[in-house]
Each structure stands twice: as C-alpha cells, then as structure tokens.
Design a binder for these strands. Structure first.
Lengths: 70, 70
DNA sequence: TAAAAATGTAATATATAATTGACATTTGTG
DNA sequence: CACAAATGTCAATTATATATTACATTTTTA
C-alpha cells in the first residue's frame, strides 16, 4: 500500500490529530498511523467511518488507479 | 453490513458469475458471495480490485450513508 | 530551551477477513 | 423433465486487520 497523504491532508484540514481521528472512528491511534503510512489495508467499514468524520468520499481518500505492491 | 445489491447489479451488467468475478480479483467465490450477502467487511484493496474489474467507483459500489449494524 | 503534545515504531495478542472443501438448493437450458 | 451451471450454505483452517502496551523521536508551544 502507498502512503495515504490525502488522508493526512484531510485530517489536517479538520485540525485533528491521529489520536482525535482514531477516537472519532473508534480505532487505535496506531491503526490510523499505519493507514497513513501505508502499512495497513483497512476494511471498507473503517474507510467509510473515516470519510464521514473528515467529510470526504471514498474516492477522494481511498481510490488508487493501480495497486502498487501485493 | 447490508446486502450489496449494487455489486450484484454491476456484476450482472458485465455478465459475470460470482466465480468469474472471484477469479478476476483473485479471491474465492465464497468471499464474493459473502460480500454480496453483507456478511463480510472486505478490505479496501479488495474493494478497489472489484471496482476496477466492474468499471465502477468505490462510491458507486461501496459507499453507505450510515453504518447499519455493528 | 524546556516541557508537552504529536508522531513514529515494535512486539505480542485477538478478532475477523478470506480460504478450502463439500454439499444443498435454485435457476437456466437442451 | 433432466442436466448443468450458478448460487447458497456450513465447518474448519489460515492470513491478516486491529488492539494493547510501551517507549523513542519529532514537532509545538509556553
């Protein structure tokens, strides 16, 4: 998975820390960190929760034209 | 998770069986069945793969205004 | 510039996505 | 109708998303 800079930017736009977002969507801070870093392949439910909190769509935050690795 | 009828319809539009789609995205037929039935909370990577094969966006196939259960 | 807040990282544990194999039921077609 | 293909379902297993705890590093701010 590639780094998710769009997520990082959307979070910054809302002035939320990784911890704030984690709490808002009900996961651990490390999970948000791992998603932004591209280490995790999150579930669609978590992606939707993040989108709702940040006011973005799935396509805006989680679409990728091509799958890079694995 | 709610039944994913949009996925079922998009698959029908491409005249693909559950088995065809499963093979195209590299998962088992049961996984596709479970997603359509709403039993699984698939990963974003699998959702993207399905979207690419069916020529749809994440928002078209996997967005939900509200999370129903659990 | 020191303290606090935020972020990065790692190891271990747990929940659940996904596989596999097998069979039952439904649907389409000769 | 009979056969085949597609779909539905179940149980057991494996892979991996996520949690938890803990600490190190970077960034912010008083």
């Amino acid at each position: 998975m590639a780094k998710n800079l769009r997520l990082k930017a959307a979070r910054a736009e809302k002035d939320m820390t990784q911890g704030d977002l984690a709490e808002a969507v009900g996961v651990s801070r490390q999970t948000i960190h791992a998603i932004e870093k591209g280490e995790y392949n999150p579930t669609i439910r978590l992606c939707r929760a993040i989108c709702r909190v940040l006011g973005k769509t799935l396509d805006e935050l989680f679409w990728e034209e091509e799958e890079t690795e694995q």
